[in-house]
């Protein structure tokens, strides 16, 4: 069959393309575009992502560790956000912190999503003892306060950014698994899944080809909300001294600020907090708008 595909003419390829129409994602994008605040928030998120990428490539804020002025000089035209105790630029630290924050959101989602989708889908689809086992597992897991889990994982793996990724990834899949399980249960008895069964589709095909695409919007919504949870959690972990070390993150900056405030040095706290506040707010609003745009239940009500 692959060889047959390979020898097809371009005309035939176009013909195959023509059986793909405007997808649900396309539809959702049309709806999202109409909402000004969602577009604005998407813009903010993309801006942060760009900053993070540039910082990662070393285009900007590569030498955040360099001493650029006197210790604790207040914001000025030269140093927009002032300097810290070692005379390093706070702006550069905030930019480097953006890179940390975005990577924490991205990598922790990348860890949490496969786990959550797998457990949720399997439990919801097969039901019975598999469901009971999975539900037992995640209810037990989630009955331990998340901060305790985060701390214990951090203690086991030692301090560092990798720990933050893994700790946040491993502690945040439960909510997603619950949502996916519920949606899969709802869909598995729908006629279109039965129809696939009557055509001879096996479990794998029914679950992955038919059901999962119909619940995939949950993953998108989850990711956008997970980002802001992860960013906040990184701040808390770092503030507790369990997170990032050796490089600046918004969390360590806020941690530093607790000593600085007594000396009227407010700019490091302000820089990190505002940077975090804006992106968390943007992700939150975007998440809500995505839910409205993607959720088929609300479709047609606009």
């Amino acid at each position: 069959m692959d060889t047959a595909d390979a020898i097809m003419t371009s005309d035939e390829k176009i013909e195959i393309e023509s059986i793909k129409g405007r997808s649900l994602l396309g539809d959702a994008w049309q709806r999202l575009k109409k909402e000004k605040k969602a577009v604005l928030c998407l813009g903010i998120v993309l801006f942060y992502a760009l900053i993070a990428l540039l910082s990662w490539w070393g285009v900007i804020a590569a030498d955040w560790g360099k001493e650029v002025g006197a210790s604790y000089s207040p914001p000025s035209s030269e140093h927009w956000l002032g300097t810290d105790i070692f005379g390093r630029s706070v702006l550069q630290k905030v930019i480097h912190g953006t890179q940390i924050a975005m990577s924490v959101g991205l990598i922790s989602s990348a860890i949490a999503i496969p786990i959550g989708v797998f457990f949720g889908a399997v439990a919801g689809y097969f039901g019975g003892w598999i469901d009971e086992l999975v539900v037992w597992f995640y209810t037990t897991f989630s009955s331990v306060p998340q901060i305790m889990l985060l701390m214990s994982i951090a203690f086991i793996l030692g301090k560092g950014i990798t720990t933050v990724y893994i700790a946040l990834g491993l502690t945040s899949w439960v909510g997603l698994a619950r949502l996916i399980r519920g949606e899969v249960m709802k869909h598995k008895d729908r006629d279109y899944v039965q129809a696939a069964g009557s055509l001879g589709a096996g479990h794998g095909r029914k679950l992955f080809k038919h059901i999962l695409p119909n619940v995939s919007h949950i993953v998108i919504i989850f990711t956008s909300l997970q980002f802001q949870v992860a960013i906040k959690s990184e701040v808390i972990l770092s503030y507790l001294g369990l997170g990032v070390s050796g490089q600046p993150s918004w969390g360590t900056m806020i941690d530093d600020a607790k000593l600085e405030l007594a000396r009227d040095v407010w700019w490091q706290l302000a820089g990190a907090t505002i940077a975090m506040f804006v992106v968390v707010l943007a992700f939150n609003i975007l998440g809500d708008s995505l839910r409205d745009a993607l959720d088929p239940k609300l479709k047609g009500k606009d």
């Binding site: 649900l24 729908r190 695409p213």
Partner: peptide, 11 residues
């Protein structure tokens, strides 16, 4: 409900 809403008629 008997058609998968995420698949085109062709698919």
């Amino acid at each position: 409900s008997s058609l998968n809403p995420r698949m085109t008629i062709g698919e």
